[in-house]
Design a protein around this nucleic acid. Structure first.
Lengths: 341, 341
DNA sequence: AGAATATATGAGAGCGCTCCCACAAAGAAA
DNA sequence: TTTCTTTGTGGGAGCGCTCTCATATATTCT
């Protein structure tokens, strides 16, 4: 039996309205009154009923987070956990709460309906990865306050993203500058925007440096360790001298395949990953990689969403975070070796 | 501007009450009326306002899920992602939604308050791992419908758990039966219940087979890959002939340390893990391990919680799932080798 | 047939809150 | 002083729903 505003009012000898003002930090309450009411609130551990507040004010302080199913595969990658943690942490700071929706295709209609029409959510963060996503489209069309993690290929919508193309380009260029010439890549799924963008960055880097794209040096992975392992096995017969791998988790798998095959890293082959995930510095050898911080992206997304919720209509915010090259020991500069000899 | 019951009522020429009955599947509505109303509902994509429903009925169809912070460490393990997916999937099936609370110590008071007093949650699932958890205690004392993932050391509360002790015992006994005699272990954090229980199982197995506990063969890990790697490095000088490792993620790290040290698995040392995580069959060599399914535990937890919510007071449900030994190639039977020679 | 029961629908109250407006008390301007 | 503002507080309406109760219609029993 929870406590109500009315009871607090009775106990502190003021009206319901005044208690409401105290709870919501409105001005025009005498300091003395405020203190008296606050002490009753604290004593009884009063917490306003969110449902009632929502009904009356049209705001809930709750935001939705939609992440794709198939996370059990994707989740072997620490990307989502970090993202969730960032979002959750930022929500706590801003006094918001988070509802999590795992987007299972079978229940997609239910998800969309509840997201949109239940009146429970002030806004939604979507970490979709697919090129086409019906949820995004629905929410966008209905003007639900919305922030994406990762850019959208068509819609002019708010998003936070790393500059995947530029980062992949930088990574590939780094391999080229190390003197590598048979540069392979293990991509993410090409129907995911991040997978697509990183592959594009690889292609443009090759092009800019006068290399031709060799399809036998391209293997599509799925962002999992095992996917990286399999893709690397497929690439080994092509004898690449370096590989740009679209995330660190696949790089770990690739490393495993190379160790098994007796191919040394970086002496025989240079490896560069993507993410700078927690495991990268602990790989054997420590992994050169492109840094991105899903935790920070999550925080940024929350703050952006709250701005949107509060300020109503604004030009879409599209925040692109540059990714930084983290050089460790998995790449060997051929020039450097020549000099050393 | 969402649609309301009243509007549906007007459009279908019945009263608000009748629409409510249709929406909630009550009986005593003429089939003809029901169809008429339903068609209007479908056409307008009507979704009842959860807040209003909650206020009026005292139920929301929302459950809370609390998982510990530090997940970014723990999340490198697929345990939580799978658990979340199981819970989410079961919620979808049962027409519930899930709010996720990452338990950050700094915001614990806020979490508890909102969990308990906001009136938004019909029940809570807690996947705490610590021996002492103030959140559990608060919710328990206030009679919030509650299911734990993992047993509680004191409280007589509903939970779903694997039989960690028995499973660890089985794993250790398996190593003994393979002819191993210097059996090491890499434990989880001992202040986590699962870590503690698995360690206990290891100890009792040793005891039952007449081995003494040798503390130099015990290394405490933290359930992460890197933790497993470090712990294994610490154990190698002790020259164990086998290791029981409290989860597969640490086992992957241990395997890495062993490869680096040139120690062959299983020829030189036998390794057994815990979880049968997705990566286990793909390890080098494929990992013998104890199977548990956090996905299924999540489903079970949801179903149990919904029962509790609906049936009010019941004796605490304590569901213990037996864990199954999955034999792969990371353990070698010494007997078998002798025979082979 | 009339009375008793079963079935279908509507009206009203109220869940706990916010927000608008009314009004009292106090201070500033005339 | 009177008038006009400012500040602090209370009362009422209403958010969209569920639920109980009253009422109207259909079915069964004597």
């Amino acid at each position: 039996m929870p406590i109500t505003l009315e009871e607090i009012a009775k106990l502190s000898g003021v009206s319901r309205s005044t208690v409401s003002r105290v709870v919501n930090g409105h001005e025009n309450v005498r300091e003395e009154t405020r203190k008296k009411v606050q002490s009753v609130i604290d004593e009884l551990n009063f917490q306003p009923n969110i449902a009632a507040r929502s009904l009356a004010a049209g705001k809930t302080g709750i935001m939705g987070l939609v992440i794709p199913a198939g996370v059990s595969a994707l989740f072997s990658d620490p990307y989502f956990p970090q993202l969730i943690q960032g979002i959750s942490s930022a929500c706590n700071k801003r006094d918001y709460s988070m509802m999590l929706w795992v987007d299972e295709p079978n229940y997609r209609l239910r998800t969309i309906r509840q997201l949109l029409y239940s009146g429970l959510l002030d806004g939604v963060i979507i970490s979709s990865m697919l090129m086409e996503d019906p949820i995004i489209k629905s929410l966008y069309e209905r003007h639900m306050p919305l922030v994406l993690i990762g850019r959208h290929p068509e819609l002019n919508v708010n998003y936070i993203d790393v500059n995947n193309q530029a980062a992949a380009n930088k990574a590939t260029s780094f391999l080229i500058n190390c003197g590598c010439s048979r540069i392979a890549t293990i991509t993410g799924p090409i129907n995911m925007i991040a997978g697509y963008d990183r592959y594009q960055g690889y292609c443009t880097a090759l092009d800019q440096h006068g290399f031709d794209l060799d399809n036998s040096l391209v293997a599509e992975g799925d962002f999992t360790e095992v996917g990286g392992y399999d893709a690397m096995k497929q690439l080994i017969p092509q004898k690449p001298d370096s590989v740009f791998i679209a995330n660190d988790t696949m790089a770990m798998g690739a490393l495993r395949a190379l160790h098994e095959a007796g191919i040394r890293v970086p002496e025989d082959i240079s490896i560069i990953g993507f993410d700078d995930s927690p495991i990268a510095p602990h790989a054997t050898p420590p992994l050169t990689t492109m840094r991105q911080s899903p935790y920070d992206m999550g925080c940024e997304a929350v703050n952006t969403l709250i701005e949107i919720i509060n300020n109503q209509v604004r030009p879409p915010q599209q925040i692109v975070i540059e990714s930084e090259l983290v050089i460790r020991e998995s790449c060997l500069s051929k020039e450097f070796v020549k000099e050393a000899i």
